[in-house]
Every structure is written in C-alpha cells, then in structure tokens.
Design a protein around this nucleic acid. Sequence first.
DNA 1: TTTGTATTTGCAACCGATTGCATAAAAATT
DNA 2: AATTTTTATGCAATCGGTTGCAAATACAAA
Lengths: 351, 351
Amino acid sequence: MKEDKEITIYDLAKHLKISAATVSRSLKDHPGISKSTKKKVQEAAKEMGYRSNNFARNLRKQKTNTIGVIVPKLNSYFVSSAIAGMEKIANENGYNLIISQSLESVKKEIANTITMFNSRVDGLLVSLAYDTENMEHFDVFFDKNIPVVFFDRVYEDSRSLNVIIDNYRNAYDITKHLVDEGCQRIMHIAGNLTRNVYAERCRGYKDALRDAGVEFQDELLIVNELSEEAGKELGKKILQMQNKPDAVFVANDVCAANCMQIIKTAGYSIPGDIAFAGFNNDPISKIVEPHLTTVNYPCYEMGEMAMRNLIDHLTGDGSISTTNKIILRSEIVVRASSLKGKGNNQGLHIA
Amino acid sequence: MKEDKEITIYDLAKHLKISAATVSRSLKDHPGISKSTKKKVQEAAKEMGYRSNNFARNLRKQKTNTIGVIVPKLNSYFVSSAIAGMEKIANENGYNLIISQSLESVKKEIANTITMFNSRVDGLLVSLAYDTENMEHFDVFFDKNIPVVFFDRVYEDSRSLNVIIDNYRNAYDITKHLVDEGCQRIMHIAGNLTRNVYAERCRGYKDALRDAGVEFQDELLIVNELSEEAGKELGKKILQMQNKPDAVFVANDVCAANCMQIIKTAGYSIPGDIAFAGFNNDPISKIVEPHLTTVNYPCYEMGEMAMRNLIDHLTGDGSISTTNKIILRSEIVVRASSLKGKGNNQGLHIA
DNA sequence: TTTGTATTTGCAACCGATTGCATAAAAATT
DNA sequence: AATTTTTATGCAATCGGTTGCAAATACAAA
C-alpha cells in the first residue's frame, strides 16, 4: 500500500475527513480521543504506509531522542562490548545513538563534545580519553541541564552520574592473591594515574601490599599506555632488570598478554619465575598461555546500566540528581598465570 | 556570550535589523549575499552563540544527514574496527551514524532495517546476519532510491554497492601455502555457506586443492558458527577423528585459536602434527601459540571505504550506479602455526 | 425541555531553517 | 538624466507534527 510520496498526518486527516490534530493525538494514544476514532486512524495509518517524521516532531518538541556516546576507541574489547549493551537498551527505548571516538586525545574529545552539543543530543555517555584532565568542555551540557553519564573512565563531579566497578577492591584482591601465592616483588603496570581507573587500581595494589606487610617500591610501579606495543616494551624492560619481579600485575589484559610473550620467549617460566595478572577478562586472557588471571569486568552490563540510567533520567523516572555513582559487581578470576601452587586460592572461581 | 535560550536566525535577524532569509543565506555562504553582510552575520552568530537547528533544516530539506549502520555484532574485532573507520569518515563529512546490531538474527535485522527506514537515514551500511537469506527487507530502500552499501557479508545485487576483499584468492593462497608446507589432509572450517564470505573462502580452498592435485574430501569440510565455543567443539571433534588432518584452515581466527588450544592441550604439536591457519588477522592471532598464519583483513580501511563511497554517492560525486563492487587489498600473513619447515614460503611476509 | 457536565474534536499558532520569486538598491550604459 | 543591467535583500510559503484553548457534541441530571 506504500505510495511513492510520503504520507503525512494531513493526508490521513483528509482521507478520514477529520483534523490533523485528531490524527496526531490518535497516533500517540492521547486520552482525549475516543477509542473508535483512534482505531480508525491507526488502521488507516498502517494501510497508507504512514511513517512519522521525527524532524517535525523534534523541531516542535525540542527533543532529539538521540543519545551521544563518546569513547576513547571503538575497537577494543571493553568499548565494543559496552556499546553493544548500550545499543540494546537504547534500541528498546526508541533512542538513537550517535557514537564518536576521541582516539585517546583530549583535543578530539573536545571536538566531539561540540559536535554532540550541536547535534542537540538529549544526553551524553562518556568514557574519557587517556589524557583528559580538564572537564570544561562538558560545562555546556551541565549548564543546559543535559545529563551526562560517565562510565569506566570517569570524572568525579557532583553534576554527573558515574557508572564504574570497584577498581580499588579488585586490584586489592588480585594483589593479595599474588601475595598469597608467595610473591614478594610484585610489579604493577598502570595507565595514566590521573585517570580514575588506573589511580584506583594502583591504590588497591599499594594498600594490599601494605596490609600484607610487603613494602612498596617505586621501581616496581610503571606507567605506560597499556597497548600491545607497550606490553612488548615492558617485557623487554623486565628482561633487563637485574633484580626481577616475581609477579607482574598489569592494569589491562592486552598489555599483560603481550608482555608475557616476551618474557616467555626469553625462556622464563610463567608463573614459576614470574606470575602474571591482568584486568578486564578480555578474550585474549583465555588464549594466552598460561591463561591469565584477571578481573572479570562486566563490560556489556556496564553499557546497559549506563544507558538505562540515562534514559530513566530523561523520562523522569530517574534520579541522576540523587544517585551519583553506580558500582557494578566484578570479581577476580584466577587462572594458571598466577598459580604458583604454594598458596591457597580462597575459594575463588577458577576458570 | 551564550544565553540561556537558544538563538535562532530570527534573533540574529532582529539583532542585525535584516531579514531571516539573509541570515540563513549568509550563514551558508550563499553567493547572492554581499561579503560585508556575510561577515557581519557570521560574527554576530559566533558572538551570540548561535547553533543551527538540524531538525528545522532536515525538515525543510527532507534530508537527515544520518547514516544507518547494521552489523551482526558490535563486539568483534572486525566489526569494531570497521565501525571505527566509518565513524572517522562520517565525522569528517558532517554525517551522524546510527548503529544497530542484528545479533546474527534475520529477525532482528529486519526490525533494525525498519527502524532505520523510519529514522529516514540518508543511506545504509550493512553487513548481513549469519542466517539472512532473503533480502526483501531492503526493498523499501531500493524502492526509495536510498543507497545501501554492503560490506564484508554482502548480497549480490545490482542495486547496491559491495565492499569486500577477495576471499576466494586469499583462501586459495592460504590453502596453497599449506600444501606447499607439505600438508595433504587439509581440513576447512567454514561458516554458513550461503554467506558470500564463507562460500568464497570455501571455493578458494577447494580450487587450491584441485590445482595442487589433492583430492577434496567431504569429511574434511565442516561448517560451524566460528565462535569461541565452536572452536572448542571443533578441537574435540578433531581429537576424536581416527584419521586426523595434517592441517586445519579455519575461516576465522577466534575459532582457530580456540581450537588450537584444545588440540595442543591434548598433546599434539602445532604445526608438527597439525598445522593451522585462520582468517582476519585478529590480535588474538599474534598471542596464541604458535602464532597463527592468517589473512590480513583491512577492517578499518573497509569501514572507511564503505563510508566514503556512500557519502560520495549521496553528495553526487559518487557512482553506486556505475561501481558495483570494490575489492580491497588483503594478503596472507604466514606465521609459525603453519610452518612445517619443509616447504618454501614464496617470499611471503612473515610476521 | 432545559441546564449542566463530561467527552471529543478542531482551530491555529507554534518549532527554525530554506528558497522561489519579487523588489529594492547600486552600478553601468546610453 | 533616463534606462538597463547587475547585485543584494526581503516576503512569504513550506516542511510535518504538537498542543493550548475554544467549540461542538454527547450524555446526565433537574
């Protein structure tokens, strides 16, 4: 029944000999319209192949039904999983997503923020770039009361909601696990420490050491980009150390796996000589050998949760005003890379 | 200088004591407006914090500046990389992306298609779901002359542009390489053979065998989902074969890597007992041990290319009408998993 | 039948930018 | 100075829904 030309409510109105206002109300199930009229309109709409014009609607309602997402990089396990979760929820609720990547640069992040602002997104979901330190570019959103939800790489600010995991706790647990396995010289590889995720993991690492009576040593803390290449570099660096660590806790699986390879290739045994632990539970952690002890990060769920809360807030149910932080459950997953066999493993899930 | 209320061209017009039409034309650099007026308007716009309202614009122009992307699954290496490339190009050209996933189900794919249609995207980029066989759901787009570009998992249709790699050639090369390494019982693991990519790879495999004088055997061709789990299943299946293959060419790295693990754990040597080859050059291929011989698939570039062509077409430069297929360069990457050391490697790039 | 109340529907003014056509102003020509 | 040509601007309609308010119709009570 589709015509070549787009059908509008005016066409429907003319066809049914009623007003456009009534058509409009009928289509959105307005209470003031009689059941019979509604039915007539809805049927005619279907028959004639009517499709609502969002632009007219948005123009009039001053709402876009679009949510902006800014991430550091689309092609990583964490981000793509999180976005998959977001897409699902947004889709279910009739929201569109516009996605852009900062490619880990504040500059691009700022540009994207402006684009999003100009696209008049109803809300924004953001995971910060590696080097973002200043948050002024989000002020335009706060000023206009456009809700901003940060996830994973967040910014502590009373005006926004943060969805995170307990990085501190997990890092603490994993470090403690390494200690329990008998490690004493535990190295930690962190990302940029101004980024909450890495700062928290580092703090957990330090506190666990302290509580275990192991002294923290500056030389055992390294900050890098956590990329594949950084992992390889790291491996080489470790090989050159005269006093090598007996364990390495890396803030990210990809970096950990690549580092392990270098170490292994040089003839060291893992976990025998050096134990390893990562973070994220990236699929790679189950491929690298030995399998990598890591933290099971609920990426997909985090995306769902962040989106759900944003939408709830937009539709009024929500409460970004009252809720300020959502912490998702996550837990360490012990695998062979850290099992020296000396310690207990405290009933932790072994996969 | 930003006010609380949105500034419109009417505000600018009033402020400058000129008509809204002149403002509109000035802002878009219309030739009929004098330089001095244009400058005045553009300056005032900046000063007053004007931002153009896309909905009004779209409503009037009947164009959305939005491109729809439908993919099977967001969280895979291939897809996230391709989307990263698309986003880059779209962003550079002022287009927005709306992205949705079919989750490998035709049903959801159809639903997404309808959503995209109703969102009035200017164009569509699609990689088909695993089980899509019927293409009727794209007819609405073809009927309305909305360009559709398929990438990777494509559909041969004169009305659309396909962006692909030469799956046949690569599969042929990789199979030939295995033969050259001395393999005779080469197994091939394919995906759904109605999907072009898998059909082509399978064809390349068969032809390479034929040309090498190796007889194709039905029992050595297996179709599965190519997922992690499928890879493990496959490993078990191979272990149960009495007459095992001496090489396995899997149509996807993730599946290959997971299969290798099972085989290795059972005590077989790779490539000694069984050589392996995959497809995609997923990061996992450089982690699994031995490193996996595979095909370097230009995911990011494919995303860029698909998007660029779609946009060119929308802006009139393009020619989906004339171009019907774009084949990107790709090549096999030989790594340890297939090097039995008996054969030559024909100068192929070894990474 | 009349008045009052509740239920349905329509009128018309938005939302903000675009554009064909007409007009006004400036420049060039006679 | 009068006329033609060129250049610059404005008028007003249009895109398609939405919604406050008024009007019309239905139904109930008096």
